[in-house]
Design a protein around this nucleic acid. Structure first.
Length: 488
RNA sequence: AGCGGAGUAGAGUAGAGGUAACUCACGAGGCUCAUAACCUCGGGACACCAGUUCGAUUCUGGUCUCCGCAACCA
């Protein structure tokens, strides 16, 4: 059976520490990956690090270290995070400083160039002599560099390479028309369609090497390096060793597959880059486009953006730390919080307080307690040999994941936890066992099967917890200690 | 200016053209299998103004407020 599936996160730009937004994107993509694997797909799951460009150079200069050293160190920091999030270890990494990536970026450039989408034009760039860096309008305050307000910003006229965005405009429009679910959710798609309708301007895709050397060289021109976006976006296929055919053919082109599925996850700040620029590049190079781009919202805290000056920053490591004494599955707790407390497509709010409340309500009092009470009864009353039915995922549950609504998916599971608690209370098997043993046993077997079903559904979301619940039911074992201890 | 999103009980969120749901907090009761857990009941909400409709909180228009984007910022 040929069921290939490709999914990638955006590659984080490694000029800062990993934050909750990164963690959330990884976790969601991981949930989809695990779900698809359980459905029999051959999944290529990609992530990596974006390591070129001005900001990286700036960061390295600031710390006074070699740029390669800087990206090596920061990339390691990110790589550390994946296992702590319970991300499957069958994950592919690409760093944009890798040789295979640089080759792919050069090839992408050549193809766009050969097809007539790249041309040279004079460009006015703003440059701060103090920083020795290019600056964008949004970085300047009153047309001055905030770090060097006493120096004038230099306007550099230089020959730059431009991408003929305007030339792919009609192709993009056609792509959008033919693929009504290209961008998910639909309100984001509307946003980008409206943007496209206003018309696209060509944009600069190179920088002078003398001013910004940290990038992939432009093929055939020693004086320029590629603008970081052009190189970074190519990583989604350089990870497949493109332009070599092998994995690219299998996972990106998916020629023999029933339905082509090439999925990208990204934050809402990336809408334009992923849905417009990257798709435009693929079209220009004559390559198949992405089939679905899933746009995440942001995580805020207490109604405000997380920021160091407000002091409301919560990073993934903090949450793991909070729960490491209480459970053997802190990564599942973090996954749960991100999946359950943040809407799938809109902004969500997390505070230390809200995280604790959710943990107590759903994990300690919910799943953990439910597991204990059922397993205790099965044990005490010696009810053994539970027959596990072959498949128990309902269509309603599957539909949540097929539409990438991971938040709705895990809420569905939590609802089942709740209704199983209600079922126990209303049927009272613990009372019935004294008067009608047979009937009590029927009820408890039903409970065991339903608990096992919860374990199964939990699988993509909270893999370790799901596996533990399943094995407890199978072996008719009481958990040695609570799955999720209550907070002190 | 423009574009997109949002305004639902004390807080955080669901939801739908016709008894507004969930988690936490609060009040009352129940159960004892369970992690002082679990179950039941109760109080309390659809920003504002018009329109469409038998009927709107849900659709349309407007107002106010908040958030994001406003391109070469990765």
């Amino acid at each position: 059976m040929n069921k290939p599936f490709y999914i990638t996160t955006t590659l984080p730009y490694v000029n800062a520490e990993p934050h909750l937004g990164h963690a959330m994107e990884f976790v969601r993509a991981d949930v989809i990956t695990r779900y698809k694997k359980l459905q029999g797909y051959d999944v290529f799951f990609n992530t990596g690090m974006d390591e070129h460009g001005t900001k990286i150079l700036e960061g390295a200069i600031k710390e006074g270290i070699d740029v390669q050293e800087y990206v090596d160190r920061n990339s390691a920091r990110f790589k550390e995070l994946y296992p702590k999030l319970g991300i499957t270890n069958e994950i592919n990494f690409i760093r944009t400083t890798e040789e295979r990536h640089i080759k792919a970026a050069e090839e992408m450039w050549k193809r766009c160039n050969d097809n007539g989408y790249i041309y040279k034009k004079e460009y006015e760039a703003k440059y701060c002599v103090g920083c020795e860096l290019y600056k964008t309008d949004s970085e300047l305050v009153d047309d001055k560099c905030p770090i060097h307000p006493n120096r004038e910003i230099e306007i550099i006229k230089e020959e730059n390479y431009f991408f003929a965005f305007s030339k792919v405009e009609s192709k993009l429009r056609e792509l959008y028309e033919k693929n009504p679910t290209l961008v998910i959710p639909d309100f984001r798609f509307n946003e980008i369609k409206a943007f496209l309708d206003r018309g696209l301007e060509d944009f600069s895709i190179s920088r002078l090497k003398t001013k910004m050397p940290w990038g992939v060289p432009v093929p055939g021109d020693d004086e320029h390096v590629m603008y970081v976006w052009f190189d970074a976006l190519t990583s989604y296929i350089s990870t497949l060793e493109w332009p070599e055919a092998g994995d690219f053919e299998k996972y990106w082109e998916q020629s023999g597959a029933e339905k082509r599925e090439v999925i990208q996850y990204c934050g809402k700040d990336n809408l334009r880059q992923q849905s417009l620029i990257w798709q435009g590049m693929l079209l220009a190079a004559g390559l198949p486009t992405t089939t679905n781009i899933i746009i995440d919202g942001f995580i805020i805290s207490g109604g405000q953006k997380m920021s160091k000056s407000i002091g409301n920053v919560i990073n993934p490591f903090d949450i793991l730390e909070m729960f490491k004494e209480l459970t053997d599955y802190p990564e599942d707790v973090l996954r749960f919080i991100l999946l359950h407390e943040v809407p799938s497509f809109e902004d969500g709010d997390l505070t230390v307080e809200s995280i604790k409340i959710a943990y107590t309500a759903y994990l300690a009092n919910g799943i953990g307690n439910l597991t204990s009470r059922i397993m205790r009864m099965l044990n005490t009353y010696n009810i053994d040999n539970i027959e596990i039915p072959a498949n128990s995922w309902t269509n309603e549950f599957i539909a949540t994941l097929e539409s990438y609504d991971t938040n709705k998916g895990i809420k569905y599971v939590m609802h089942e936890v709740k209704s199983l608690d209600e079922y126990i209370q209303s049927t009272e098997p613990f009372k019935l066992i004294k008067t009608d043993k047979e009937k009590a046993e029927v009820i408890l077997r039903e409970c065991a099967v339903r608990l096992y079903g919860i374990g199964r559904m939990l699988n993509p979301f909270m893999p370790k917890t799901g596996a533990m619940i399943k094995s407890l039911v199978k072996e008719n074992k009481m958990p040695e200690k609570p799955l999720f201890n209550r907070l002190p």
